[in-house]
Design a protein around this nucleic acid. Structure first.
Lengths: 110, 110
DNA sequence: GTCTAATACATAAATCTCTTATGTATTAAG
DNA sequence: CTTAATACATAAGAGATTTATGTATTAGAC
């Protein structure tokens, strides 16, 4: 498990990017995918994820589609046009940040 | 300038590492070095830096030496034995985090 | 000579994210 | 039939940083 402090500020970027790569997904599915991709090093908590999804939707970056699975409700999220445009910027911003940090910390990122 | 959110959680690591690489330094000097190394992309604010230095000192990771420059006081910080041991871990932790993130975000860090 | 920017420290209130805790409900498995 | 997994949601508290403010010295510009 990674130090939760480092994760701060990356949650929106993670959500936007996995939605770009996988089309529509629902909240719980996102937590499982990120857990799998990160080999259990990043465990998104519901308390962080759902407010973030709501926020991104309110900001017009995500749109939702509610589907009934038996008696259970599943809420699918997908990127809006605006959201799609932003993903690239966010990912680029993160990569740039890493590059800067690798200089400051004098480490080589392989 | 990088998004300040991404910087969260990295401040201690930055401070510890530049002190390891440069021996003793004072607060203002750290802000200037980080600004230079990052091509002005990381600007440490005093409100964040000084409490962090005090915290690291209180935790026994840094030791201080006050020097009088004319009528001005300059407070030099350097790593304690404990601090030196921790730097490696913190840097490794950051690199590991980046590796995980590059998988989750499907980006290649060159 | 004097005004401004840079140097150099420091603290406190406000803000922003996220963690932790709690709540509800359905479905699958043992 | 009981527990774990699925699936949503919100709210209180914690923690790190920003923003604002304060003090004081020194160098440089005019």
């Amino acid at each position: 498990m990674h130090s939760p402090e480092l994760l701060k500020g990356t949650l929106q970027t993670i959500v936007l990017k996995v939605l770009k790569d996988n089309g529509k997904m629902y909240g719980y599915e996102i937590t499982q995918l990120v857990k799998e991709l990160s080999a259990s090093r990043i465990m998104l908590t519901e308390g962080a994820l759902y407010p973030t999804l709501h926020r991104l939707e309110a900001d017009g970056l995500l749109k939702t589609e509610v589907v009934n699975i038996g008696k259970r409700v599943r809420k699918y999220y997908s990127l809006t046009t605006e959201g799609k445009a932003l993903v690239k910027d966010r990912v680029t911003e993160f990569v740039d940040f890493i590059k800067t940090m690798s200089v400051v910390l004098q480490v080589k990122i392989a």
